[in-house]
């Protein structure tokens, strides 16, 4: 069942965006990415001294996977920093996709909504396709869409906490109120059922890294997430029944034996 979707004019088949950090080895990272069947990989830029060849080795593992690259601006605390990193990323990775992160708090790595809007506006003007890591605030997400974002990525919970979806109500509200934008949950997913829940809410995809990379068996976990994302997607497409207060028998009552109405 083909379920491709359009992201900034690119057709993707998987709804799983996977990160490339925190794996026990480059080989396991590569195998996990393959097992995930993800079309999109996130990566980053960091300072490197001449003698440290780590960067090149990492790049050799990534570039042959045939995935779309989504560089991030992780660690940036101001629009100026994020814009500089975005421009470097475009030059190095030859893509105008950018996962925009402007961090507002170093304890929970929460996005700075005000810096995020400022950087989003500046980057869109410079021709970037912005994937903003956002909070689950409806008004912020609306502003991001107004600025021209075709993808918005509200968090489920703080990065790396595995706390899942802290506020499903807020995420569902964003889905209902912004029906035309691509929504992914990014951050905080801990287990496949969290990802499935996001998809059941009607999200278009999920972005995660830690939950796979720090699993005991990252490769198998990547496959588990791929299946749960697919399951949640099909469930949403199938029309999930609403919860209700009173019980309702599933077995027909007409012709119930031994039962006498008195």
């Amino acid at each position: 069942m083909s379920d491709s979707w359009d992201v900034y004019g690119v057709e993707l088949t998987s709804r799983f965006f996977i990160g490339s950090a925190l794996y026990p080895s480059p080989e396991i990272m590569q195998q996990a990415i393959i097992a995930s069947k993800a079309d999109v990989i996130t990566l980053s830029l960091r300072r490197q001294s001449p003698e440290n060849k780590g960067g090149e080795q990492f790049w050799d593992f990534i570039k042959n996977l045939g995935c779309h690259l989504l560089p991030n601006t992780a660690g940036c605390h101001s629009p100026k920093e994020a814009i500089a990193i975005a421009e470097m990323s475009r030059d190095i990775f030859q893509t105008d996709w950018i996962k925009l992160e402007v961090i507002g708090d170093d304890y929970n790595l929460q996005p700075d909504p005000f810096g995020l809007l400022e950087a989003t506006e500046a980057l869109i003007k410079r021709g970037f396709k912005v994937f903003p890591y956002s909070t689950d605030d409806l008004v912020l997400c609306q502003r991001l869409q107004d600025l021209g974002c075709e993808v918005i990525m509200p968090w489920g919970s703080p990065i790396g906490t595995a706390k899942g979806l802290m506020n499903p109500y807020a995420l569902e509200t964003i889905r209902q109120r912004l029906p035309d934008v691509n929504l992914l949950v990014d951050a905080g997913i801990g287990k496949p059922s969290d990802a499935c829940q996001a998809m059941e809410l009607g999200f278009n995809g999920v972005l995660l890294n830690t939950a796979v990379a720090e699993a005991v068996d990252p490769v198998t976990m990547a496959d588990a997430f791929a299946k749960s994302i697919e399951a949640g997607r099909y469930a949403y497409q199938s029309g999930i029944m609403p919860a209700r207060e009173s019980a309702s028998p599933s077995t027909p009552t007409i012709g119930t034996p031994f039962w006498h109405q008195n």
Binding site: G19, S20, A21, L22, Y23, M29, T42, L43, S44, L45, R46, R47, Q48, G54, G55, E56, F58, W59, I62, P71, N72, A74, I85, M88, I92, F93, I159, G160, L208, N209, T210
Partner: peptide, 10 residues
């Protein structure tokens, strides 16, 4: 001056 190159990222 900052000199950066590709690394893994989430």
């Amino acid at each position: 001056i900052d000199i950066l190159n590709p690394v893994s990222g989430g």
